[in-house]
Design a protein around this nucleic acid. Structure first.
Lengths: 144, 144
DNA sequence: GATATGCGTTGTACTATACAACTACCTCTG
DNA sequence: CAGAGGTAGTTGTATAGTACAACGCATATC
């Protein structure tokens, strides 16, 4: 096995290790919003509203999964639906005031945790690490 | 927000995006062994056998979760239990011949997928990316 | 020996997820 | 403009992974 293979192996193992832990870690950090619902709510906030179908397409989730996630977020009062007047099949989803507030809190606490984890990294390393992750994920999207 | 914060934000987003996809991707790639069971089986192989409790501690899983995962792997004939003659509470778990075989196949196919994804990276980048991931995960383990 | 502790299993419950069937709505085509 | 076919979203059903709590044994300690 070449050095190149060693690196690939390490990347594989470490990405896997991270993935295994991520959900539980997220749940521990902020029980009010799971990793998935956080992600969806953040997307809504970011996009200033979008359709359930868009969420499903973007995150490679089944529409039924999104439907239930959104239903849960709505029940919590974090999301509201606005039927599109142009097309009555469509509901445009928006974070509510409350949802945006909770999202901001969770985002802040996540950012804090990440910042602590990365506190002793110097700026160039952070920069390169971020770039590598972007590149890696882009490749994954491209190749499935 | 500083440039440093931007990088932290990107790392957070990209790690999260990756984590969300990892299970489903793994399931699609090799339905015969989920991400979790793959990980556990690989650990057994690597350690030349260990106890369920050790797996639980190492992967931060509840012992009941490990117990059921192992039961499933045993049912598939991928793992065997050997009661420790020194301590009859303990079962030392080992991959079977068949289990080792399947593990090798899955590992090979995972490696292939990762290799493809990383095919156009030059060796220095792979090296650095691997090092960053190790460093990041180590920090996560230290800080919860 | 009585009580502690440690290992593993089982009962129960919850979350995330997929697939398939369905309803309601829209669009296009003859 | 009527019907065919497509799209958005919901609901029924099933599965996997997970946790927590209660338990059964085995061992260790006092």
């Amino acid at each position: 096995m070449t050095h190149r293979d060693d690196s690939v192996e390490t990347i594989q193992q470490e990405m896997t290790a991270f993935a295994r832990r991520a959900r539980a870690t997220a749940a521990r950090m902020h029980p009010e919003l799971s990793l998935v619902s956080y992600t969806l709510l953040a997307h809504l906030d970011d996009q200033h509203g979008c359709r359930a179908t868009d969420l499903a397409a973007h995150y490679l989730l089944d529409k039924s999964t999104v439907s239930r996630q959104i239903a849960a977020l709505e029940k919590l009062g974090f999301v509201e639906r606005r039927v599109d007047p142009e097309d009555h099949r469509v509901q445009v989803l928006h974070p509510t005031e409350k949802g945006a507030q909770v999202l901001a809190n969770v985002t802040a606490s996540r950012r804090k945790a990440f910042r602590e984890r990365l506190a002793d990294w110097d700026e160039d390393d952070l920069d390169r690490f971020a770039a590598y992750l972007l590149r890696y994920n882009a490749a994954q999207e491209r190749l499935g």
